[in-house]
């Protein structure tokens, strides 16, 4: 146990190997980017769209793997990870499109459409994956890592891809934070200011997709949505205005990724994604208990105070009648 803690502290303070540090830096960037983008999707009540996107991306990953396998037999081998990410992006976008279509054109509500499309498309992913497994090949083992995430299996190139994608997403989000804030609160207001709302909606969807794809390998497609949901929700318990909300959410995302990734460097058996998510969850639980207005403790105290005041008022009224 003591060894584990020492090992963890070493990784935490960037005392691990060079590769570990590259992965750690990239993961922190990912956490910061996810925390920032996540604020806007939370404010638009679209948190679970990312979940559907991520679930559906398995089908694209497996399909891309199969197609690439068929092509490389003829000698043209494109680089692996980029092709898989391209496939994931296509199938994830198709699923998000399908959810939108169902919500607009049928009487189904958004939550039903989301649950139905994400589970069915994940089923398709599992089917294609079972074909890919039979087809075999060296890269097939890496596909499983994308489901549950594994920072240990990341090469330096993978970490660079993740870091650059995360940094790019973060930059674009910060540059566009003003119009993104406008559409987060009111489409109609945003339109009156001359903003092209559909374009901004598409931008937000693209940013969410970019974070999801960037984090798939480290965190895994089943848990990446947590990085987009939990840090913004935790920050929301403390912050009332958008700038502090963004700063806090980004810090919490970065801190969770930092702690979780270094923990998994110390204990290679433990899945990275789960450790990152559980760190974020722990911060959320503490905040939910202790936050000043939206916290459980504050809420219970307020309730007790209201009850006491009401009782006191009732007693006074009785005394007044009696007198």
């Amino acid at each position: 146990m003591g060894e584990l803690v020492a090992e963890w502290l070493r990784a935490l303070s960037f005392g691990g190997g060079f590769n570990t540090n590259v992965v750690l830096c990239a993961a922190i960037l990912l956490g910061v980017a996810a925390g920032t983008v996540g604020v806007f999707s939370m404010l638009r009540k679209e948190s679970l769209v990312a979940d559907a996107f991520a679930h559906a991306s398995l089908a694209g990953v497996a399909a891309a793997f199969l197609v690439r396998g068929a092509l490389t037999a003829e000698g043209s081998a494109p680089r692996s990870m980029e092709v898989l990410i391209l496939g994931a992006g296509v199938s994830g976008s198709l699923a998000v499109g399908a959810i939108g279509w169902l919500t607009r054109n049928t009487r189904l509500t958004a939550d039903t459409a989301t649950a139905a499309v994400s589970s069915a498309s994940f089923g398709l992913g599992i089917c294609l994956l079972s074909i890919a497994r039979r087809a075999g090949g060296a890269g097939q083992a890496g596909l499983d890592d994308l489901i549950f995430g594994s920072a240990a299996s990341m090469t330096r190139a993978d970490a660079w891809t993740m870091g650059i994608l995360a940094a790019l997403t973060l930059t674009i989000t910060l540059v566009a934070s003003k119009p993104l804030t406008a559409i987060a609160f009111s489409d109609r207001y945003a339109r009156t200011t001359g903003l092209r709302v559909p374009a901004m909606e598409a931008l937000l969807a693209a940013l969410v997709a970019a974070v999801t794809l960037a984090g798939m390998q480290a965190v895994g497609m089943l848990l990446i949505v947590a990085l987009l949901v939990i840090p913004p929700a935790t920050a929301r318990l403390w912050a009332r205005r958008v700038p502090p909300l963004l700063a806090l959410s980004a810090s919490i995302g970065g801190l969770s990724a930092w702690t979780g990734t270094s923990l998994s460097a110390a204990a290679p058996n433990a899945p990275t994604g789960a450790l990152i998510v559980l760190t974020a969850s722990a911060l959320f639980v503490v905040s939910l208990a202790a936050a000043p207005e939206r916290g459980v403790i504050a809420g219970l105290l307020r309730r007790a105070r209201l009850r006491r005041d009401a009782n006191a008022a009732a007693l006074r009224a009785r005394d007044a009648r009696g007198a």
Binding site: M42, K45, E46, S47, L48, D51, D111, F148, L222, L223, V225, A226, V229, I230, P232, A233, R236, L237, A270, P271, G273, A274, L275, V277, L278, S281, F284, L288, A291, R294, G295, V296, G299
Partner: peptide
């Protein structure tokens, strides 16, 4: 109820947390 967060956010937090715990 206490955090006054949107139901989709609450659901997203709870299921990812419990699933992560299960995976770990």
């Amino acid at each position: 109820r206490f955090g006054r967060l949107d139901p989709t956010v609450a659901i997203g937090i709870v299921f990812t947390t419990l699933f992560a715990l299960g995976v770990l």
